[in-house]
Each structure stands twice: as C-alpha cells, then as structure tokens.
Write a protein that binds this DNA or RNA. Structure first.
Length: 555
RNA sequence: UGGCCCGUGGUGUAAUGGUAGCACUACAGAUUUUGGUUCUGUCUGUUAAGGUUCGAAUCCUUACGGGCCAACCA
C-alpha cells in the first residue's frame, strides 16, 4: 500500500484551507443545471467535482435547477437530469429550484430599490445596448436612471402585475455606467416575459436574470463554494456586489475551465441542433456525448467517473483526447464484460474429419479476469464460421491466422489445419476444408502442437443472426466548434455502420444490463431498440487492435 | 485597439523558491488458448527575453500566444 497522497486540485486546496483555518466546519456545494437540455460529458465533470468534494470533505451537495427562463425550459429536461445524476452514482441532499425562490428574489429586488440601488428602465434592449458603451468607451446613463424610489417601487409592482408588455421595461442595478467590467454597467436584473413556467405556471410575468438569481439562490442555500466555469469570471464581481448590498449569506464563487473533448461538441445549443435537425436520432443517440447517449452506448458510470478523475480540474483551456475516455471504458469493461463469440463477416469452414450431424458442447470461461463468472457452453460441429479476415490465401510474414497448410487454435475448442480452399466459379472463396486434431481439445490438449494464433468462431447451424451497430466519432475534425464555418459541416457521415453478426447461442438470453466482450472485436451491449426476435447490439468501443497497427505500418 | 483569465512533452495534470513527476498516446520487447489483458523499457516538456536569488516552471517586468466579456441566455 502506498502512503503517498494524491495531490490536491486548486479547489481542494482552497477548501482544505477554509476547513483548516476554521472558516467553515463543513461545506455546501451545488450542481446548478438549467433544465433546457440533456446533460453531457462536460456536466459529468462538474457533477463529479461538486459531489466529489462533499464526499471527500464534510458537507453536502444540492441539486438546484436554474430555471429562470421559462421559454426554453421543460419538465422533460428536469427528469432526464435527475436520472443522469443518479445513474452517475450521486445523490443530492436537497432538490431545489431557483423558481422556489421567486418570492424571496422579488423581495431582494425591492430591497435594492429601497436602497436606491436599482431602478426601472423604460428603454428597450437596443437602447440599453447602445447606452452600454464598448470595452474601450464608457457607457451613458439611462434617462430613467434617477427616478425616485417611490416611482421605481410603483413601476416594479406594476411590472409584476402584468401591466406592461414583454420587453417594454426592465429592472436594472444602479452601479456605474463607466465601469471597466461591462457587467457592472447597470446590469438588467428582471425582465418581463408573459410566459408560462414549467413549475410556477402563470404566477409570474417577470423573471430574474441569471445574476439576480444564481448568487442569491446560493446564498439562500448557504452554499459555501459555488463552483462554475471560467466564462463566469466577470460575473463574480456582480455576484459579490449583490450579496454585499443585500447583506445576505456570503457564498463565494470559484471558477474552473470547462472540459472540452475532441471530435465532439459539448454545448447544449449545438446538441439541440443535432437533435432537432435529425443528424442523430435523439438526445440519447449512442453517438451523442450526452450522459444518456453514453449510457445507451454501453459506457458505465464507473468509467465516466474514472475519466473525470483522470482529466482533473484546472483553469487553463483544454481539449481532452477522447481516447482517454475510451481507455477508461475499456479498462472497466475488461474487468466486468462477459466474453462471447460473434462472427461478423463469415467464411464457412468444413471440418472434414468431424462426423456429419454430430455436435458437442464445449466450455468456455465467461471472463478470464474474473473466475467467479464461471463458464458457458458453446456448440461445436462439422460446419463453422470464422471471420473472413482471419484467412489469407497468400499470407504475409507475421500472419498468425489461418492459411493453406497453416494451423490455428479455435478458441476453447480444437486446433485445426487448413487443407484446401474451395472456390466458386468466379474465383471467390466458397469454403475452407480443414481437419481437426481430436486430442487438441482445450484443457485436454495432449497433441503437443504449438500454434501462434487463436480464432473466434461459431457453429454454423447454431449461430443466431443479430444486428450490430458500429459507431465512429460524430465529427471529422478535432474541434468542430472552433472551426470557421458551421460545426455541422464537419459531421462524420460514416458515424453509424450497421452490420449483421452470427452469434453464439448463449447471446440469445442477453439482458439490457449485461456488458459483453465479443472476442477479438470489442465491447457491446444490447440496444434499447432490441426486440425478442431481433437482437440489436451497440458497439461501445473496439478492442485495441495491434494487428491493424502492424498492417498500417506495411502500407 | 479596454478589462479580466490562462500558458509545463502529442494530450490531460502534478511539482506552491531546492532532483520537472504521473496518466493517456506513440514506439520497442516479454507473456498470452482474445494480435485483448498483464508486465518491462524508451522517446518527447516548463512560450520568449530580461530581472531578483546560492538556486526560478514557481517571484517581478516586458513581449508573444490562447480564451472570455458589449443577450431582456445561463
């Protein structure tokens, strides 16, 4: 056992310090999704961070929906988010909604008005934008900036009562129109939206902006460490300003760099486009980087958590190699997946010295990495299928598979030798005539024959036809969102390849929770489209393929 | 061209003034009834220039590079 401690990330260091110097006895974090889309792998990072922190340190984590914009938010998203967080293996202390706090938030706004720190502006959005100034020029005060407190109070109440149309008025903080931070130039706090909210219905027609809702919700929940991504850095000044002026519980905001992954996009807006414009079949399409897509693809929560742990937390821009995610799922699946044999592109093998009509059942281990998984039986007979790729008439030097005159082991069965290649009239191969060595049966091999290669195979008469969906990366370029033109121009049109497979009969009883390794091919799981009569498997990820690499070298 | 944030191998992340480490990838080899797994080894790095210091990835200055900010989105 190593006593070496893993080094802390910068947030753990801050928390460690806060706990050690007595600033806090325990901490509160929150995961604050807006329910306007499904969670993706980037959110997984944030979830593992926020929940992970309160597993490591005393305290708890809330799930809080940042539902302040009724026009984009839906209950469907709320449900999916809860399912995904639980599936990842985390449980929140409290389920909260910013909309739970609408009354309180309204009171906060009134407090600001009473302090002379907020005012109702009759300007429309173009006018406000114009008066905002630019990064190099100061803004101009709105003509409505110096209304009396009484007038502001009256107008704000009438906004709430629905007397004004959308966009006609806003409540703005009164800060400084020449502030170097654009966000401090009298930011909008409340806007009018005559829209039905998924939780509060038609109770409200004014809704708080992010800045008016987020920090105050943190404060209400006594969140100690409010962790968000780097793009919110400029908001921190406003976050602190509002909490300070309101004199409420001082939550603090900390920022880390969002994780980007190559060959995909992680932006709810872009993912929504892929769904709406039918580039994928839905949010849970196995090619999507969503949690639900990864789940359907066959990824395990363990592998995703491991991935998030490995990529870490920092503040610099990053583009993580999707290969690491694949490594993590291979590593987990290698330990838990049941081994099965499936031939995809078959070539018929006739064992000429094996009696016609005779069959035997051979035992094979379910998982050599885990003996407790036991064995299964596989039928063997005179006619078999092997992979077309596993035979070559004129093999190159290091080809350890089947070739005329060459011998191979059939996994968990016998050693066979290829005697004859039977061809069609057009020259294509019809079948291979082979002989087997009866004394070479797996586990009882007394033949003394040494072979270099072992092949997977299925008994031709017992094989079950299944559909297999092979997936490739959704985009052809590393950073589709960073390209000049529209990200959809870089979609990989070959990201889905549907093939037929001939499976050993034990796969007929596959369950949705099962994870399989199809020997020498990859990891697979049953897809939700599967039916009793038509089994459909998703390829989660291929096995590493050293032979493919070897071949590439000689090209 | 204003402000803010950030620059460590191909990628991600450590080293908090004292031997630049770990993981993934790549490459080479060993083992293997999965060309998988496992094991061993190798390559590759502090953006640059000054300064402070016995000593700098670390502190300071400047330059360079990247990112964010001018929604009634979050």
């Amino acid at each position: 056992m190593s006593i070496e401690e893993k080094s802390l990330n910068f947030l753990e260091e801050i928390i460690d310090g806060d706990l050690n110097n007595g600033k806090y006895q325990s901490i509160v974090t929150r995961f604050p999704p807006e329910p306007n889309g499904y969670l993706h792998i980037g959110h997984a990072s944030s979830i593992c961070l926020n929940f992970g922190l309160t597993q490591k340190y005393p305290g708890y984590t809330n799930l809080r929906f940042d539902d302040t914009n009724p026009v984009t938010e839906e209950t469907e998203y709320v449900e999916s988010i809860k399912e995904d967080v639980r599936w990842l293996g985390f449980e929140w202390k409290n389920e909260r909604y910013a909309s739970d706090y609408f009354d309180q938030l309204y009171d906060f706004a009134v407090t600001l008005i009473n302090k002379g720190l907020a005012y109702v502006d009759d300007s429309n959005s173009e006018e406000i934008a114009k008066m905002k100034g630019t990064p190099t020029e100061p803004g101009k005060d709105s003509p409505y900036r110096n209304r009396t407190i009484e007038e502001n109070l009256d107008l704000f109440l009438r906004m709430r009562n629905g007397e004004f149309p959308d966009g006609s008025r806003t409540l703005r903080a009164k800060i400084d129109m020449s502030h170097p931070n654009l966000l401090m130039r009298d930011p909008v706090l409340y806007r009018i939206k005559h829209a039905s909210h998924h939780r509060t219905g038609d109770k409200w027609c004014i809704y708080p902006m992010y800045d008016m809702a987020h920090g105050q919700s943190d404060s209400i929940e006594n969140v100690t460490h409010s962790i968000c991504t780097m793009e919110f850095v400029p908001h921190r000044e406003l976050y602190d300003w509002l909490i300070g002026k309101l004199e409420i519980y001082p939550s603090h905001q900390y920022e880390f760099a969002r994780r980007n992954i190559n060959y995909t996009v992680t932006s709810k807006r872009k993912l929504l486009q892929l769904v709406n414009e039918k580039y994928v079949t839905g949010w849970d399409d196995p090619r999507m980087p969503t949690i639900s897509g990864l789940r359907r693809r066959g990824y395990t929560p363990e592998s995703i958590r491991d991935f998030c742990e490995r990529i870490g937390v920092a503040k610099r821009e990053n583009l993580v190699d999707v290969g690491l995610l694949e490594f993590c799922v291979r590593e987990h699946l290698n330990r838990v997946a049941l081994r099965r044999m499936v031939v995809f592109d078959p070539i018929r093998v006739i064992i000429t010295n094996y009696p016609e009509g005779q069959y035997e059942n051979l035992k094979s281990e379910n998982n050599p990495e885990d003996e407790t998984t036991g064995t299964r039986e596989i039928p063997f007979g005179r006619e078999l299928f092997i992979e077309k790729d596993d035979f070559m008439e004129n093999p190159p030097k290091k080809f350890f598979r089947l070739a005329p005159g060459q011998m191979v082991r059939l996994k968990s069965a016998y050693i066979i030798k290829c005697d004859e290649v039977i061809k069609e009239t057009d020259g294509s191969i019809r079948e291979l005539h082979c002989t087997y060595f009866p004394d070479s049966r797996s586990g009882h091999d007394t033949s003394g024959i040494q072979v270099k290669g072992t092949l997977h195979w299925v008994c031709a008469s017992h094989a079950a036809e299944v559909e297999v969906r092979e997936y490739d990366r959704l985009f052809k370029v590393e950073d589709p969102a960073g390209e000049e033109s529209d990200f959809k121009n870089f979609i990989n049109e070959h990201s889905l390849n549907v093939v037929k497979g001939y499976a050993e009969p034990s796969l007929l009883s596959a369950q949705h929770k099962d994870r399989f390794q199809f020997l020498r091919k990859g990891y697979y799981c049953l897809d939700s489209d599967s039916e009793k009569e038509k089994l459909i498997f998703n390829r989660t990820v291929t096995l590493k393929d050293a032979w493919a690499k070897e071949q590439k070298k000689s090209l």
